[in-house]
């Protein structure tokens, strides 16, 4: 039996058995990433706008949110939501919810800064011109400032989303059955860490590199078509 476990055989039978489990892990990874991507964008938009254009209270609130979640490790956030928060609210928090909370709030804080920087890069004259027409603040924000800001923000968001996608691996620490956790389970049962972890790394590479290439293409196209 020993030869079956030989690390030199990348496509060893044990790995073939592991593939479906890794596939399931990948689905969980993608699910978590998708939820966090949407949630962090919304959080970023809300807090970014609050910090950019909100009154004193909202501004302070946005700063507090961004500083707290940017200045603590995301792994600590995930573990806090998983282990500490249930004590406080007195109900069970699933690994998925804890990971999604940690990753979304963390990534949301970074996204808020991206939104803010993007909006700040829009020249002041745009506000003046829109104000001079008598447009409401909300209308200026959503029709004039944000559409222009979004274009500047795409490179930053590309990096952010790729970072977020990689960070989903941290959910393995609280036993959320995504790719890395599945890999650990498989390697524990079949003693094939070389094959499994190499394959997991390859899966990440196979997703991240094409994704960043596509996002960069999209950005270049937007820049070219930009009026």
């Amino acid at each position: 039996m020993d030869f079956l476990l030989s690390p030199s055989l990348m496509l060893s039978p044990s790995l073939m058995i592991s593939l479906p489990a890794l596939g399931r892990g990948l689905v969980y990874t993608l699910e978590l990433a998708a939820v966090c991507l949407v949630a962090s964008l919304l959080l970023g938009l809300v807090f970014g706008v609050m910090r950019y254009a909100g009154g004193r209270m909202l501004h302070a609130l946005a700063i507090a949110y961004v500083e707290v979640f940017r200045n603590t490790p995301v792994l600590v956030q995930i573990l806090w939501f998983f282990f500490a928060l249930p004590i406080l609210v007195n109900f069970e928090i699933s690994a998925f919810i804890a990971a999604a909370l940690g990753l979304s709030l963390n990534s949301g804080a970074f996204s808020a800064e991206i939104f803010r920087a993007g909006m700040q890069a829009v020249p002041k004259g745009q506000w003046e011109a829109a104000n001079a027409l008598g447009m409401s603040r909300a209308r200026v924000m959503f029709r004039i400032v944000l559409p222009q800001a979004v274009r500047n923000m795409i490179p930053a968001f590309t990096n952010r989303w790729i970072e977020l996608f990689k960070l989903t691996s941290l959910a393995s620490v609280i036993a959320y059955p995504e790719l890395v956790y599945s890999a650990q389970q498989i390697s524990n049962s079949y003693f094939n860490p070389v094959e499994v972890f190499t394959l997991v790394a390859a899966i990440f590479i196979a997703i991240v590199i094409p994704a960043s290439y596509l996002l960069r293409r999209l950005e270049a196209r937007l820049r070219r078509s930009a009026p």
Partner: peptide
């Protein structure tokens, strides 16, 4: 390669796979 893979995967690879 190292920018596209999660830090945790790199760590696990070194810790669990490299010895094998």
């Amino acid at each position: 390669v190292f920018r596209a893979t999660p830090a945790l995967v790199q760590l696990y690879w070194l810790y669990f796979a490299l010895p094998r």
